[in-house]
């Protein structure tokens, strides 16, 4: 009898753990990187841009707190056009809400690679960028350098 009761207790605990685990999993951000590429830089360029989409498929928001690249200084910028003037604005601590995305595209949000060696950013090269999120931690994304095909 006691044995049977212990088994039931054991199963109940397992069930509770499973429910808790599922609730916890549902309340995590899920960061996904899609279609990232970098614009091939002219031979004399000191900077270039990268574009793509960062999706948060999870149920809670996450914040991009740092971006790193061994091949260049890198920042998340946004080009804003006001009264015909384009202005680049540095973005820090970008929040990506649950089930939403941050679209990086020309004349909007973009990764700005500065102080580059153009040979490293020529067509076909691979560049690794590390994105650090407050909750999700660090993700490495490999990006291909492609010709400007706007």
């Amino acid at each position: 009898m006691n044995n049977r009761r212990t088994k039931w207790h054991y199963l109940l605990v397992l069930l509770l753990l499973s429910i808790m685990n599922s609730v916890y999993a549902d309340s995590q951000p899920e960061i996904v990187f899609e279609k990232f590429w970098i614009v091939a830089a002219p031979d004399v360029a000191r900077s270039t841009a990268g574009y793509g989409v960062i999706k948060n498929k999870g149920d809670v928001a996450d914040t991009l707190i740092n971006i790193r690249c061994d091949m260049a200084m890198i920042m998340l910028h946004k080009t804003e056009i006001t009264s015909g003037m384009a202005k680049m604005i540095h973005q820090s601590n970008s929040v990506i809400e649950a089930h939403s995305e941050l679209l990086l595209e020309p004349m909007s949000f973009h990764l700005m690679f500065m102080d580059i060696t153009p040979a490293n950013f020529s067509e076909g090269k691979q560049i690794t960028v590390k994105f650090e999120f407050e909750t999700s931690g660090v993700s490495e994304v490999n990006m291909t350098v492609k010709a400007n095909n706007y």
Binding site: S47, M107, M112, N148
Partner: peptide, 17 residues
């Protein structure tokens, strides 16, 4: 200007097209 990473290369690419 040539140190522009986003809009100037984008514009020149557009003009090339």
């Amino acid at each position: 200007y040539t140190n522009c990473a986003d809009i100037c290369p984008f514009t020149l690419g557009y003009l090339a097209r």
